[in-house]
């Protein structure tokens, strides 16, 4: 089996990709997908630790994270739809009535 550090490295890389996406992409939906990527990177870390520590807490936490992410997606997409109805855009660079 691959050592723990490999799993951690993969999830760290995924996390960084997600972070970069949030910082540099301009489409609200893509930014949101990048956030999901970050959460899933953390899930991978949790499962890796759980496996190597022989402790189930991490896996239980992953279930909670998935549930929360689903709830967050529901609310987030609703917000994006409300915005689109008023502004006909999901480009966050154009969402700038308030000083950013």
């Amino acid at each position: 089996m691959a050592p723990l550090s490999h799993y951690l490295a993969v999830s760290a890389i995924l996390f960084v990709i997600g972070t970069a996406g949030v910082l540099f992409r301009r489409n609200a939906i893509i930014v949101f997908m990048c956030v999901e990527l970050m959460l899933n990177a953390v899930n991978l870390t949790l499962i890796a630790f759980s496996q190597f520590l022989g402790d189930q807490t991490g896996q239980i936490l992953v279930f909670f994270v998935m549930t929360v992410a689903a709830a967050e997606a529901a609310v987030g997409l609703a917000i994006v739809i409300a915005l689109f109805r008023n502004r006909q855009t999901v480009d966050i660079a154009k969402v700038n009535i308030l000083k950013w």
Partner: peptide, 10 residues
């Protein structure tokens, strides 16, 4: 309000 919600959410 839409804008505030989106920024807060993201």
């Amino acid at each position: 309000s839409n804008e505030a919600a989106l920024k807060y959410f993201l």
